[in-house]
């Protein structure tokens, strides 16, 4: 008897395009009411996974069950119960803001009266009521993204799929989107999202998997992942460019759990950052700048893959 609270279950899920394996046998479960994230750089296989979940891309192997149904056979029935916010805006630029919701709702077979009632509520929710009768094209990137979110909610989905919800938005617009998604989460909407921003993952996800090169590298809550794969504090040191490598050799002598030498900085993973900085200075080194901070998911990703998230 399958657990009714498991909305999506994947076992050995695989997606191949010719010789290229985009998703390489991943396992995960999505539970009702949670916000579940896929964190990874571009090309990690996140979007391919989202497309399989959205029933617009048949899996090449493994098992995938969505809402207890088979995505290959029951695609339309599953899609009727999903909300999809794709990475690239697919808004209808020949229609107004309101008409975008109307027509999208019609694609679900919803009566116009129901759509009109939901449209008023959704436009209010994404703060676009005043733009309801405007064309879509002149809207800012943040507004378009919010409209896409509103559109994905028109069928009152059981699962909301967000593929890179704030990629390409300026910081202020990102925060507005995060705020709206956080409200949805608090209303109990089940979210599944991909991101290559660690702050987005930390803010929105109850649970996430770190994905790299088509595989899942680790799974847990942001806190659990940081505890398991990083130290409480990180000391970031920056030296003069010409001294960078030399300094790195010397810093290695300071006590730390782990050291990462990036192109522009040296990261020391430690329990106490201030003590580590004192130790570095005791070695006779004086960094140009130094910063003691808490570990983030970025550090988890670096530890797991040896690369930075933004590098892709």
């Amino acid at each position: 008897m399958p657990d009714a609270d498991i909305l999506i279950a994947a076992r050995g899920l695989t997606k191949r395009f010719g010789d290229f394996t985009a998703v390489d046998g991943i396992d995960f479960e999505l539970r009702r009411g949670e916000a579940f994230g896929f964190l990874g750089p571009n090309g990690a296989g996140k979007s391919s996974t989202m497309r399989m979940i959205g029933c617009v891309s048949p899996p090449s192997g493994g098992e995938l069950s969505i809402l207890g149904l088979n995505p290959v056979l029951d695609g339309p029935a599953i899609r009727a119960r999903l909300g999809v916010c794709p990475q690239d805006d697919t808004l209808d630029v020949e229609l107004t803001v309101r008409e975008n919701l109307l027509i999208y709702g019609r694609y679900f077979g919803l009566p116009r009266r129901v759509i009109a009632e939901r449209t008023a509520r959704l436009l209010d929710f994404v703060q676009l009521t005043e733009r309801a009768d405007d064309q879509v094209d002149p809207l800012s990137g943040g507004m378009k993204r919010r409209l896409t979110i509103a559109r994905s909610l028109i069928n009152e989905p059981e699962i909301l799929i967000l593929d890179e919800p704030t990629t390409g938005l300026d910081p202020q617009a990102r925060h507005v989107v995060w705020d709206r998604l956080f409200r949805l989460k608090q209303q109990g909407v089940t979210l599944i999202l991909t991101t290559h921003y660690m702050d987005e993952a930390e803010q929105l996800c109850d649970r996430l998997v770190v994905m790299d090169r088509g595989k899942i590298a680790a799974e847990g809550s942001p806190r659990q992942l940081i505890e398991a794969y990083s130290t409480p504090e990180v000391l970031e040191l920056r030296f003069h460019v010409s001294d960078h490598e030399q300094a790195a050799e010397k810093v290695a002598n300071a006590p730390s759990e782990r050291m990462e030498v990036l192109a522009d900085r040296i990261l020391l993973y430690v329990i106490d950052g201030d003590a580590a900085l004192a130790a570095v200075r005791a070695l006779g080194l004086e960094p140009l700048t130094s910063l003691v901070r808490r570990s983030t998911l970025e550090d988890v990703f670096l530890r797991l893959t040896g690369r930075r998230l933004e590098d892709g």
Partner: peptide, 14 residues
């Protein structure tokens, strides 16, 4: 360009 069908096929449309 308009990705009209991509949007439609994310719904129950076939």
């Amino acid at each position: 360009y308009a990705k009209l069908y991509d949007a439609a096929l994310a719904t129950p449309m076939r």
